[in-house]
Simulated assay, not measured.
Amino acid sequence: MSAVAATAPAQPSALMLFAAGLGTRMRPLSDSRPKPLIKVAGRALIDHALDQRGTLPLRCVANAHYRADQLAAHLQGGDVTLSREEQLLDTGGGLRAALPLLGPGPVFTLNTDAVWQGPAALPLLARHWDPARMEALLLCIPPERALGHAGQGDFLSDAQGRGRPGPGAIYTGAQILKPETLGEIDAPAFSLTEAWRRMIDRGTLYLAAYPGLWCDVGQPDSITLAEDMLAEKVPHD
């Protein structure tokens, strides 16, 4: 075991924001700006994502590629460091490239194309995190509490909360992950699903449930859905 691994903290103290994509599903809105800067209810999507920190004091890093200078200007003066990508590395490759900025130990990762109505996502994840059993803990939501998302769901879980692919809960884009598994993958650009497959085989990928509402803002039509949800025009328990 390396010295870094031996001294790595058990609890996450850093957040990786995925903000480098081309936003093709958001065209024409993304023709002139990166998707994380598209506004919902008057605020950029990346600012809605940062709200999910709650009161956690996290070291924050966002990857950037498409129109990266716009993202840098928006974040200037704040507490988010940019990890610029000369070429798109996807979620796994982007996270691995940002590890020197994030520091050792498990990290939160968060997509920047969703809006939430309910408790802050990352403190909720932290309360369910058990580093003795878990390599990853994914925050998921039942389909009936998800807006703007097509499909039959992403994950099923067993009685202990271990996840496996299947038509069940929808992954919200928020997780805690131990990054060591990224070193098992040779490709420079790859999706985090490659790491998840290995964790599923080892029985170390777990799911936690989000109790509020969530909207996938992946295309222009979803903006109105998200704004109605934030204005509490969407009925829920």
Rank of each mutant, 00 (worst) to 15 (best):
D201Q: 13
S32I: 10
A169V: 11
D51P: 12
R202A: 13
W129K: 06
A68P: 14
M199E: 14
A98V: 03
P179H: 00
I46W: 11
L177H: 09
A226M: 09
P167K: 01
Y171N: 11
F155V: 03
E227K: 05
A10P: 03
D79E: 13
L124I: 03
V217Q: 13
P131C: 01
L110M: 13
R198K: 11
P104R: 01
L138H: 10
V234H: 03
L205W: 05
G94N: 10
L17D: 15
D201Y: 09
G103M: 03
H128V: 02
P211L: 01
M1H: 09
A64G: 15
H74F: 02
L58V: 05
V115N: 15
G166W: 12
L101V: 01
G203I: 02
D51I: 06
R202H: 09
D201G: 03
M16H: 13
A114S: 15
P220A: 01
V107W: 04
T181P: 07
G42Y: 07
A41E: 10
R164G: 06
R84E: 14
G183H: 09
A208V: 08
D154C: 04
L50P: 15
G118M: 07
G153V: 05
W116A: 02
Q152H: 12
W129N: 02
S13Y: 04
S191W: 09
G161L: 06
P28S: 00
H128T: 06
A226L: 00
M26P: 00
L17T: 08
T224R: 13
S30T: 14
G103F: 03
S30G: 12
A169P: 07
L50C: 06
T109A: 09
V40C: 05
I38W: 08
L182D: 06
V61M: 03
G118L: 02
A120I: 02
V234A: 01
P12N: 00
K39M: 09
P179Y: 02
I176M: 10
Q11A: 08
L29P: 07
L56T: 07
P211S: 02
I141V: 15
A73P: 12
P9A: 00
I223H: 07
H74T: 04
L17S: 09
